[in-house]
Design a protein around this nucleic acid. Structure first.
Length: 978
RNA sequence: GCGGGCGUGGCGGAAUUGGCAGACGCGCCAGACUUAGGAUCUGGUCCCGAAAGGGGUGGAGGUUCGACUCCUCUCGCCCGCACCA
């Protein structure tokens, strides 16, 4: 009876399903063990694609499955769920192209993907499976949106708080409203958000009209409507996220032109949490690279905001002098800038506004107006690619506005320019230019012959020539003094602090922190997404639905395609605009409200799925508090997925989680305690002379060259997929070798976090291993197990304990390739000890059972089969992982390598209890060692180095090489005490 | 340009605290068996050398009795960001 993987795998997959082997109990369920530690191991949420899985997809799923199975045998309650991120563009695009409703396509794809995953023997609790498109799921996605909408960010607490709490604060006049309509915290006596001067007249909540009150609240909500510049793709009929737009300004799907255009959109105030999103990265165990990417994306920089008074062309005016200056401005205008180098303020010789800056019009002189207008027109028309090319070349463009501003530190009148190297979206959209100490300003100043003034010198006193290059490092301030402040001689850090304080005292600015992170554009003009749980009143006001009115279901529609157009100015027409009136309008107390016609982006559903897995059937709450507290303690224990989600998904989900945390709905500040990035599986791809990709399975290899129908072709490699025609389906591999082989092969390919190349021909290696395991355990003629109750030899016992240690260590380190190698070695050795043809030598049960248990997470079907052949009626899924005895690792004799001056000169074998002197004597007696010592002085110092393990090194030093303090000396005897 | 990561046989990779480089697998070479197969088994396989021995972890230096491992420089590849003030 040979290893019949097809029958074995089918049998065990059916049994696991029948027995509910991998069903996971929640706290409170009968039979739940509250004393067992928990382990929540999660895969990144897959999109159920129509083309099915290729072998690259399950790489991470196999790894997490191995861990899940391993942890079960270590006594953990393991939560290991799977589900589908099923809303989104591809399903809808497919649906549009084929005229099938996206729900039908999606369900079909989910069924196929589930079948493919089940075939891999993954130990998910399938009872917890869910899809973001389930009404009972997106009901709670909408509920979370309501939480965001009904919350604001309280800067004094640095927390998201219910809007009702703000209203109470306003009613009790803890908060006032200043002249600009900004909130002022009365308790602290200083304003929180407004940055300029003193508010002239603050008002109380009671003094506001009802409309003003509602406006105020709408402005601070974490989900708010705003007119923003979006990527509008008329051909797709939707706005696109930045990441859906290519560098040359085309849509990633379909390569259609994309235009910037202001549209009223739902936004989520992720920027309010920027600070915590950054600092809380210190709480999680993630790859440093990913943390770094998030930090860069959030882009925190500390500096100061500085106010520059506008000075007009007829001459500088003292600050605060309100002079009517006619068409040029109203005289009280100031230009706010953000700088990270306030210490260089004395070196600011001009200013630059972004071309779109709102003050450009009032600043520009009549003479400069045509040039300014022309420049603004040009930059608006410029593609992102052009801008990037200019940026790379160091070429700067810009135009003088004719206007001037006053440098607040020295009242110097400096020209104000506009240039597209200053961007509207960051800081205030305006900068003070310090060409001596900023590369960009320097290049601009050189190009337009603007003055360059050095105000920082290198700390080491070195002379620099500021006309040759900008000096951007820190140093000491020079030529930076006025009547009331001097920075001269101060190191940069000190100078920054000093000038910032001076600015604050004089009401000219204040220290502040800036982020690159933008608020999250949350609307899509698509059908296949979560509807927003809000209504629009006839007066334009937004009314949020009540929780009890959820879910807002997607309407059934015959035509769900977006309205495409070639006209960039065409009005957006979301598909839901064509929904039946019965869906679109809701009448309440005689008023007719309109539903929101946009839908949520795909990210919405994936922001919280890990919470729903905990309690997927709960109809009362998005997740039960008790189950959430249990499973989320310390965050998810292991979250495995690709690095492509480094910033977007992982940042969005953290943001939602923190809001839910602040509002008391979840118990932990961070969702993902440990993150692991798997590498990609790549595959060879082949092109013919024309550069056209050829199906990889039709290629023959001869002598290192590759041929297709006899023609030599070029070998490349890249991510597996349709476009490179190099996909391999897991189904094919399962048919030919079985999924245990596929699982082993994928893990044996190399370290989990590295990318690796798929090589179908290598699969045979691990398949042979499984066949040899089978032959070790099973008599192929009778089908009976070849085991006996006999005691294993000391050598075999040592081998067993050594292997247990190696495999256990490798499991903990997620080094599955190493774990498999250790099992292969053990199996090879056992086959030598107990060869199948030797009928009298049977495998001792004391060795057979632990071996099977170690194999089980990796090749579970074969392990279960062998386990039952060994006479066990139950599944091994919850058997205890074997343990090793360090005592058993000690060999009777030890082979020591002998190093002389660090070079290997010989090997000696001594009894393992030999002392240093005995080892040294044996070493000195060795011929080769003697030959090496011959031409040296005789009075060598010998040192025996041992480790806690069975290997050890003997070191003999020549006389001049006395032991220095860097040499770690472990006395032989001490090592044995461990 | 800035930031991060990685370079070990023909290939994938292993090597715990700085202490025997190349475990394990593929491929290749030689052989065995044979119901002739893309099966199985045995042996070999870093380089130079007949051997003794020597060299060797992208390259060049350095620290150390001793470096794949630590430091400096450099080359190559991969990833992220991209005028963020």
């Amino acid at each position: 009876m040979q290893y019949d993987f097809t029958a074995i795998e089918k049998r065990w997959q059916e049994r696991w399903a029948q027995l509910g082997t991998f069903r996971t109990l929640n706290p409170g369920d009968p039979g739940f063990d509250p004393n067992a530690p928990k382990y929540y191991v999660l895969d990144m949420f897959p999109y159920p694609s129509g083309v099915g899985l290729h072998v690259g997809h399950p790489l991470g799923y196999i790894a997490t499955d191995i861990i899940a199975r391993y942890k079960r045998t270590r006594g953990f309650n393991v939560l290991h769920p799977m589900g589908y991120d099923a809303f989104g563009l591809p399903a809808e695009q497919f649906a549009v192209e084929h005229g099938v409703h996206p729900r039908i396509t999606t369900e079909k794809n989910i069924a196929n993907m589930t079948r493919q995953l089940k075939r891999l023997g993954l130990s998910y609790d399938w009872d917890r499976a869910l899809a973001t498109t389930d009404e009972e799921y997106y009901r709670w996605t909408q509920w979370i949106f309501l939480q965001l909408h009904n919350a604001w960010f309280d800067p004094s607490k640095k927390q998201a708080r219910p809007i009702a709490e703000l209203i109470r604060g306003l009613e009790s006049e803890q908060y006032l409203i200043d002249a600009d309509g900004e909130l002022v915290y009365a308790g602290a006596g200083r304003d929180l958000t407004a940055l300029t001067g003193q508010p002239i007249g603050t008002r109380t909540w009671g003094e506001l009209t009802q409309e003003a009150r509602l406006n105020l609240l709408d402005e601070v909500r974490l989900a708010y409507l705003a007119e923003v510049n979006v990527n509008w793709c008329p051909a797709l009929g939707t706005v696109l996220a930045n990441e859906e737009v290519t560098n040359d300004g085309k849509s990633e799907r379909g390569n259609h032109p994309v235009f910037k255009r202001p549209l009223k959109q739902w936004m989520l105030r992720i920027t309010a949490l920027a600070d915590r999103l950054e600092s809380d990265l210190s709480m999680v165990d993630w790859p440093e690279a990913i943390k770094l990417m998030q930090r860069n994306w959030i882009g925190r920089s500390t500096g100061a905001r500085v106010e520059f008074d506008v000075a007009f062309s007829d001459g500088a005016r003292p600050r605060g002098d309100s002079v009517d200056v006619g068409e040029a401005g109203d005289g009280s205008e100031t230009i706010s800038v953000f700088t990270t180098r306030p210490d260089t303020l004395f070196g600011a010789t001009y200013m630059v506004l972004a071309p779109e800056h709102p003050m450009v019009e009032s600043l520009t002189s009549g003479a400069q107006w045509p040039a300014v207008e022309e420049y603004r027109r040009q930059t608006a028309a410029k593609s992102d690619a052009q801008r990037q090319a200019e940026a790379a070349s160091g070429q700067k463009t810009g135009v003088f506005t004719g206007g001037y501003a006053l440098n607040p530190v020295n009242n110097e009148r400096i020209p104000v320019w506009i240039a597209d190297y200053v961007m509207t979206g960051y800081g205030t959209g305006a900068i003070m230019a310090v060409p001596a100490h900023d590369e960009r300003d320097w290049a601009f100043a050189k190009q337009f012959h603007l003055p360059i003034r050095q105000v920082v010198a290198p700390a080491d006193g070195k002379e620099i020539d500021i006309t040759v290059a900008a000096f951007c490092q820190e140093g000491v301030a020079v030529d930076s003094a006025n009547e009331s402040i001097s920075l001269d001689g101060r190191p940069t850090a000190e100078a920054k602090a000093l000038i910032t304080r001076w600015l604050e005292e004089n009401g000219l600015g204040r220290g502040m922190v800036q982020y690159k992170l933008r608020d999250w554009l949350f609307s899509r003009q698509r059908y296949w997404g979560e509807p927003f749980p809000v209504l629009h009143a006839p007066d334009g006001r937004v009314v949020a639905l009540d929780e009890s009115e959820l879910p807002v279901r997607l309407p059934e529609m015959a035509d769900f395609s977006p309205t495409a157009s070639d006209d960039p100015a065409a009005p957006p027409q979301p598909p839901l605009a064509r929904a039946p009136d019965a869906w679109k309008y809701v009448t309440r107390s005689g008023t007719r409200y309109a539903r929101e016609l946009n839908t949520m982006p795909q990210w919405a559903g994936s922001c919280w799925y890990y919470l729903r897995f905990i309690d997927p059937k709960n109809g009362k709450r998005f997740v039960s508090a008790e189950a959430e507290r249990y499973w989320m303690k310390g965050g998810i224990d292991l979250y495995v997925g690709g690095a492509e989600h480094a910033v977007l998904h992982l940042l969005y989900a953290r943001f939602w989680h923190k809001v839910l945390f602040d509002l008391g709905h979840v118990s932990t500040p961070e969702p993902f305690g440990r993150l692991f990035n798997q590498g990609y599986i790549q595959a060879h791809a082949y092109t013919d002379a024309r550069g056209v990709y050829l199906p990889a399975e039709e290629i023959q290899e001869r002598g290192g060259k590759h041929y297709h129908n006899g023609e030599e072709v070029k070998q490349e490699f890249g991510k597996m997929g349709k476009s490179l025609k190099n996909s391999v389906a897991p189904d094919e591999v399962c048919d030919q070798y079985g999924c245990d082989t596929l699982r082993l092969y994928e893990m044996y390919l190399g370290p989990l976090d590295q990318s690796k190349v798929w090589n179908t021909r290598d699969i045979i290696g691990v398949h042979r291993f499984l066949q040899r395991v089978w032959r070790l355990f099973i008599d192929e003629t009778t089908g009976n197990p070849r085991v006996a109750d006999a005691a294993p030899s000391p050598e075999v016992t040592r081998l067993l304990h050594k292997t247990i240690k190696r495999v256990t260590d490798a499991m903990e380190a997620l080094s599955f390739n190493v774990a498999i190698a250790a099992l292969i070695e053990m199996n090879n050795e056992l086959l030598k000890q107990y060869p199948p043809e030797a009928k009298d030598k049977a495998l001792p049960i004391a060795v057979a059972e632990p071996f099977v248990l170690m194999l089980a997470p990796l090749a579970p079907h074969m392990a279960e089969e062998l386990w039952s052949k060994l006479g066990h009626a139950d599944t091994l899924a919850r058997e205890r992982w074997p343990s090793f005895d360090p005592q058993m690792l000690v060999e009777e004799t030890v082979e020591y390598p002998v190093q002389i001056n660090g070079k290997l000169r010989g090997r000696v074998t001594v009894p393992s209890d030999a002392d240093n002197l005995a080892i040294e004597t044996a070493a000195r007696a060795d011929e080769k060692v003697q030959a090496s010592l011959d031409h040296r002085a005789t009075d060598c110092v010998a040192q025996v180095l041992t480790s806690a393990e069975f290997t050890a090194a003997l070191l003999i030093l020549s006389p001049f090489g006395a032991i220095n303090d860097k040499t770690r000396v472990v006395p032989k005897d001490a090592a044995h005490d461990e």
